[in-house]
Amino acid sequence: MSLIPVTILTGFLGSGKTTLLKRVLTEAHGQKIAVVENEFGEENIDNEILVSEPGEQIIQLNNGCICCSIREDLRSTLSLLADKKRKGTLDFERVVIETTGLADPGPVAQTFFMDDEIAESYLLDSILTLVDAKHAATQLNERQEARRQVGFADQIFISKSDLVAKDEVDALMHRLKHMNPRAPQKTVHFGEVALSEVFDLRGFNLNAKLDIDPDFLKEDDHDHGHEGHDHEHGEHCDHPSHAHDHAGHGHHHHHDDDVKSFVFRSDRAFDPAKLEDFLGAIVNIYGPRMLRYKGVLNMRGTERKVIFQGVHQLMGSDLGPAWAADEKRTSKMVFIGIDLPQDIFLQGMEQCLI
């Protein structure tokens, strides 16, 4: 049995996850999709489009899709689904996991790396994060869960952009880009998004290209710090998405996001042993605060690119394609995390070079 692709759908409360899911489930796309729901709020998807028996864990829909809610943990639900598929009692081609709006997607993603049985049945395709344009600035300022969801994303969909002014959307996109430069952003309306933009994104595929926004690596009018390594939203940051008006007094408090990203780049090759030791050490100390990290690295001893990535404490590497004869062998690594000590990371990486 080939691996079953899995998409994790996350986003803060009210961002439109259920709207998007309903569309995916009811559209005549000919795909059989299993939806694992971890949302026990009033916007439960089965209230409107499913009729379920009390205590029923898996519901078959009329278009061949199925829906199930997590009664125990995610691992046992996925295991049950894979078992039913193997036995032929359930027919589905892919899984969508909808996390609760307050969830950290990290442990959900880790399930696919940590558990051998799950890893043998499923392939984690990507994490999709929905961001509500109307309420995003407040949510990102006040709720770490919302910031973490952005940090984990492989693809960001911005909903409700028609309810706010264009400059607010631009400011939000600018802010999101500096929290997570590797996730493409797209504005969507009422869950109307092509399925090709939802499935088979290969965001977690180690051989997928490293999606760092090329503009993020350039110097621009927002000073990106030394050598274009980073951009910090500090005290003097004037993006409108950071400002809140306190009780109409016109006093703007500029918020400094704790979820930030920075990029390490070098044209020198890495010493594999030194790099392994250093990454092992920082993951040991900062792992819980390291949301996503991914890179294409030039490693001594191989003519191929080394593709490296991790989530929290779990990391892995894979050999990618060979460096082309005329290609500049530049290592690039993006780190996305919560209050990570950028100087320690960048200096440590520098010391692993030959």
Rank of each mutant, 00 (worst) to 15 (best):
R143G: 01
E42R: 15
I336E: 02
F190S: 12
M315G: 12
V334F: 02
V131F: 02
M1Q: 13
V169P: 10
F278G: 02
G295L: 01
R175T: 08
H254L: 10
Q342A: 14
K17Y: 08
F335M: 11
V306R: 03
M299H: 08
F278Q: 06
T10M: 00
I354V: 15
D277K: 14
A325Q: 13
T129D: 03
D220M: 03
A165F: 10
H135V: 06
V283C: 12
L123Y: 15
D221G: 07
G106F: 02
F216C: 04
G295W: 03
P321G: 11
L25K: 09
L291Q: 09
N284Y: 10
I45S: 01
L20Y: 01
D132E: 04
T18G: 03
Q144L: 14
I344L: 10
S161T: 11
N47S: 14
L80I: 03
T111M: 07
A133N: 04
K186Y: 06
L123M: 13
L314R: 11
P288A: 14
V169N: 07
M299Q: 00
A208P: 02
L21Q: 02
L124I: 03
A171T: 10
R292I: 08
G191H: 06
E53I: 05
R148L: 12
L128A: 04
H224S: 15
F113N: 00
E168Y: 01
K274I: 01
E219P: 11
G106N: 05
V131L: 03
L13K: 13
H239K: 00
K328M: 10
C352N: 03
V306L: 15
G337S: 10
H178N: 14
P288H: 04
Q347L: 13
Q185E: 06
E232A: 12
R300A: 15
A146K: 00
P184C: 00
Q60N: 09
E168V: 13
G337W: 08
V263L: 08
H229N: 15
V150A: 05
M179E: 09
P341F: 03
C68P: 04
T10N: 02
D238N: 14
S76P: 00
L172G: 10
G310D: 08
H249A: 14
K134M: 13
C352H: 02
T18M: 01
H251Y: 13
R268T: 07
L291P: 00
H249S: 15
I33L: 13
S15E: 06
D271H: 10
I33T: 12
G250M: 07
D257G: 03
H255N: 08
V188I: 15
K166F: 01
G320D: 02
T18E: 05
C352G: 05
R148I: 14
K22T: 15
P214L: 10
S15R: 05
V6E: 09
P341M: 02
R75Q: 11
Q185H: 05
V95K: 06
N47P: 00
T111K: 04
Q155N: 04
S317G: 08
I344T: 14
L201M: 05
I158D: 02
I118S: 10
T129F: 05
T77A: 14
G191E: 05
P5V: 05
